[in-house]
Amino acid sequence: MIADIVRSRAFVQHVVLLPVLLLVPAVAGRFYVYILAVIFVTGLLAMSLNLLAGHGGAYQFHHAAFYGVGAYTAALILTRTSLPAWVAFGAGPIAAAATGFVVGAICVRLNKLYFGMLQISLGSLIWILVLRWYSLTNGDDGIHGIPMPEFLSSATGVYYFVLGVVAVCLALMYLILKSPFGATLRAIRDNPQRCEAVGINVRRHQLIGIVVATFFAGVAGVLFVVLEGSVFPDMLFWVLSLEIFIMCLLGGWFTFYGPMLGAAIMVALRTFVGSYTDYWTLVLGIVLILLIFFLPEGIMGIHLRELVRQRGRRASMKAAE
């Protein structure tokens, strides 16, 4: 399997891409380096959601709750305790995955829309706790000026840290999706009844999927803390969850990099449209409507459709021979 991956075209593309990304801080201004890091973090969050939404077919409607849990866990350990930073960085994703396990165990008993509604209620419970537990979380104000270790004191250091962690996470996600487990997740998405019939434990696979995805959401949360040095309750708010959903849709559901592209477009739009007008959500709403009507498979989805058609043609030619 490893040998296959090393020989693939995608691997070569990455080997070329990585040095380019490593060189960015040397040539680009500080602001662009920061925006790029924001894109990586948001993209990681969107891709973690897509593990479930695009590949798993689950209505994971409150993914932001786990992102927030990861971020708040790291932030609280960094500000309230004297534990080393790596403990905080490790605890964030673990706390997110643990929360994912509890929420997931309750939600997987139901399917589709009920799953989504139940998750919105459980996620909102976490949100409201963070918002109201003033003595622990500072409520509305959030936590600011979170102390960071020495190597994360410069913008460049933060960029390289974010890039490294995101790259490792993407590689892991790729391997997970390539594995038999990933194939099973897609099979459940396409036909849960048939999977049940051939002896796959659908709920257990979905639950494992949720734990994995929420773990990566927690990583994204920790990276947010590293990048911004602050956390606030809006990170757990339901509207953010829907925004991440749009990123997946925008870039392309059924592709690996689609959500990253979607996140890049959203972050760029927010940064540049937001600097011209106060009505950025109006623009977002219009973009979303256009997307639903004209591009339901997302930007990379079109490319995918073409690819499937070519492969189908090739396969039928082979069969004809």
């Binding site: 209505y59 589709k112 829309l113 829907l242 959903f245 749009i246 849709l249 106060d278 009505y279 959500t281 109006l282 977002l284 709403g285 219009i286 979303l288 409507i289 639903i292 009507f293 339901p296």
Partner: peptide, 30 residues
């Protein structure tokens, strides 16, 4: 707009109403 989507997946309908929420929110602000 909405009536053209009834044949589509439910997720698309939900996302449409989300888009409507974003637009109406800003229109209210305006």
């Amino acid at each position: 707009l909405f009536c053209h989507l009834y044949e589509r997946e439910h997720l698309m309908l939900l996302l449409f109403t989300f888009a409507l929420m974003l637009i109406l929110g800003d229109l209210t602000k305006i």
